[in-house]
Nucleic acid binder design. Sequence first.
DNA 1: TCCGAATTAACTGTTGACAGTTTATTGTTG
DNA 2: CAACAATAAACTGTCAACAGTTAATTCGGA
Lengths: 226, 226
Amino acid sequence: MAAEEQDLLALRRNSTLSSLVADRIERFILSGQLPAGERINEAVLAKELGVSRGPIREAARLLASQGLVEFVANKGAFVREVSRAGLLEIYDLRAVLTGHACELAARERDEGGVSALRGLHAEMSDAAKSDPALYYTLNLRFHDQLVRMASSPRLQAMIDGLVKEMHLFRQVSLSRHPDMAQSNREHNEIIEAIAMGDEASARRLGEAHVRAGKMRFETAARSTAS
Amino acid sequence: MAAEEQDLLALRRNSTLSSLVADRIERFILSGQLPAGERINEAVLAKELGVSRGPIREAARLLASQGLVEFVANKGAFVREVSRAGLLEIYDLRAVLTGHACELAARERDEGGVSALRGLHAEMSDAAKSDPALYYTLNLRFHDQLVRMASSPRLQAMIDGLVKEMHLFRQVSLSRHPDMAQSNREHNEIIEAIAMGDEASARRLGEAHVRAGKMRFETAARSTAS
DNA sequence: TCCGAATTAACTGTTGACAGTTTATTGTTG
DNA sequence: CAACAATAAACTGTCAACAGTTAATTCGGA
């Protein structure tokens, strides 16, 4: 399979145990198997994964670089907690950076990229009616494609990190899009601005799109206040 | 001294060898003692700093999180190289993020912070005429203060990282401000926008200020082309 | 019964040694 | 003399054990 092949390539290019362990731990964290705030017990994880504590520590440091874990001296590595305020902060940053990404994408004028976006948009239109989970997955791919089209590795890394951090927020209500149709209409506007090379509009629309997500979360959270 | 006291506090709060080693290595890198592209020889550094290789490795991973070094499997840690294109990329990101910081600062309406900015601005006006090195130092503090006033830890970390990365660019022509007076006029405009709580202007001016720095670099580099 | 000090257990931080890979060197052949 | 293969050195990746710190438990006293 393509996915496995890519895994093997990544393995060969970066064949260190630490990175494999890091991937595993990252999945543990993002899946909620390691809850936010939890300490990462090195000995237990080492035994569980069948490796020594060294790679575990290095993996934790790697994840710390992505903002997923936090080190406290003589206490160890903890899965980072993201507060409500932190989440709003992340939304703002992601909005600003996404806007920048759209501006750069509009400047690049990558036709192949634009048609990829159009394809995803069409798929999402269907999924919006029938399959929210699929919409969610496609949405991630859409935004990933968008950011890649900015061809700015640092920008991509920053946004990736922010997206991962968002998943550390306790409530998982993020995965639910209250209004997928509206969200996808915004996607379409962004695509057209990029296709036309309209940098200013692309930036404004990209930023507004994420800000809209923030506001959707704020109102949803307000109504779900415990 | 206050600085030493703060160091001691940081030491007590985070009394791990790794972090101390990381600080040392970071200074080596930023001072050019470890040039960009150079491999970090763990054994040599360990001997030099009188510690084992473990802390060195962890410190390197810590620095990797700040974008200062890069790991290659089975080859080790290398001081990251920043190309001309990379530097321009960083300038853009910093511009966008600084604009955001200014917007947030304007929203906060922190009078103490504003007067701190005004104080630095006055000092810099003097330094601009007599002491470029001092101006450079004050400029760093000015931007630091600006970002702190946004009270967004993630934003601060991001910009800090970008500023550090900029220093990895080979040519050190960054430290020279071709037109300190103009730069400081821009500072003043930013301060006033923040003081008035004019978020939109603060953002626009903050972003433009860093973009101006980028353009100053571009023209300076063009004339210094080897 | 509850609070606090002393003791014990658990865990992280650090070290030195071993295994596997990469790079440099040497020797060989056309 | 140059190109290539084999060998040796250097270095990273991993491991298991030790030291130091933090957290939990036990014990004694009010």
